[in-house]
């Protein structure tokens, strides 16, 4: 039985939507136990209102929680009994196998970093994010590519990037059912000599690995889906991710503007409405649940701060899949082969 610890108090819609997502996951995952960490009185009032399996949803009391806007380091130091700190500690103590949180990203990552060990051979953790692309991949025809790191490690050396490539590949294999994910380094040119020293050195090392390394790609290749796993440092990755989100929001705003501005444009949008709905479904982050924090000895899925019940259920399912597929073990074994 896999035990998935969920920070019940983290997220804009916590605890109601988080508890509901966990309740639904308890019905979908018959060989898992969900451990909800948070105010036991509050959770105890919510759970009986929901369809769930009372033999598979456990509550662990944590009297405080960290707000979405709190400063991570200070908040964790002041609230060692917060839901995220207690949740990370439960996993560290071996009372849980994976963690899911929609709460404060900095505090979640820091709580794991303070209490969890890294996978053997991994030097730095990486936060991965998925984004929709033109091409599809894997047995599931997955439209999403993975980019890592998007913020956990700002300054990297070549060794860190190699670790990110291994972790991203292992995750894509498991979650997208993609047997040989195409791994690429993000750079300012496709030539092996282009980019900062860390990228050039990582390129040389990845060429000798067993990964399906396709070399360097440029920014324009990201939305095209040329690579299934895009490897970069946390600073660049975060800028890229925010830019992708910004472009999407701008397109939506432009469409709204067009809708208001002219009847002919409105009719054109109406004609395209079913395609737009499909696109919306494709890019709906509620579907993929959350972003994994890779590199630690236990899976951690960071769900979107605005996660609703559906997004939380999916994030818990991803955590479960990571446990069933022994994601951390696979990363460790690949790193050992590379050494």
């Amino acid at each position: 039985m896999h035990r998935i610890v969920v920070d019940a108090m983290g997220g804009d819609l916590a605890p109601d939507e988080i508890v509901q997502g966990a309740a639904e996951a308890s019905l979908a995952l018959t060989n898992a136990e969900i451990i909800l960490v948070g105010d036991a009185t509050v959770i105890g009032r919510l759970l009986p209102r929901l369809r769930h399996d009372g033999g598979r949803v456990r509550v662990h009391h944590a009297p405080t929680f960290i707000d979405m806007h709190d400063k991570p380091g200070e908040a964790l130091a002041q609230k060692p009994d917060s839901s995220i700190a207690v949740a990370a500690e439960l996993v560290a103590r071996g009372e849980g196998d994976a963690l899911v949180s929609a709460g404060n990203t900095g505090a979640s990552v820091l709580a794991c970093a303070q209490q969890w060990k890294l996978v053997d051979g991994i030097t730095r953790a990486a936060l991965a994010a998925v984004y929709p692309t033109e091409l599809r991949r894997g047995e599931k025809d997955d439209p999403f590519s993975l980019i890592l790191d998007v913020g956990a490690t700002v300054d990297v050396v070549a060794e860190d990037l190699v670790g990110f490539a291994v972790m991203g590949s292992a995750y894509a294999k498991l979650v997208s059912n993609n047997r040989r994910p195409r791994v690429a380094l993000l750079s300012n040119g496709t030539e092996p000599t282009k980019g900062p020293a860390a990228v050039v050195a990582a390129h040389a090392r990845l060429l000798t690995s067993d990964l399906n390394f396709i070399g360097n790609i440029e920014g324009l290749d990201i939305p095209r889906g040329v690579a299934d796993v895009v490897v970069t440092d946390g600073f660049t990755g975060n800028v890229v991710l925010k830019m992708l989100e910004g472009v999407t929001e701008t397109v939506v705003r432009l469409a709204r503007y067009a809708h208001k501005e002219r009847l002919s444009w409105r009719l054109g949008l109406f004609a395209l409405s079913s395609a737009i709905d499909q696109l919306k479904e494709l890019t709906d982050w509620h579907q993929y649940g959350g972003a994994p924090l890779l590199g630690f000895a236990h899976p951690f899925i960071k769900a979107h701060g605005r996660s609703n019940a559906r997004a939380m259920t999916n994030a818990i399912k991803v955590a479960h899949k990571a446990l069933v597929g022994d994601l951390c073990g696979n990363i460790s074994r690949t790193m050992a082969e590379l050494a």
């Binding site: 039985m1 035990r3 136990e33 036991a40 105890g44 759970l47 009986p48 009372g54 033999g55 598979r56 949803v57 456990r58 509550v59």
Partner: peptide, 17 residues
């Protein structure tokens, strides 16, 4: 279909309710 953990959680559930 049940492990000891499920039974322990079942106790917790009836207490909580």
């Amino acid at each position: 279909q049940y492990e000891l953990g499920h039974l322990a959680t079942s106790i917790q559930d009836v207490i909580r309710r």
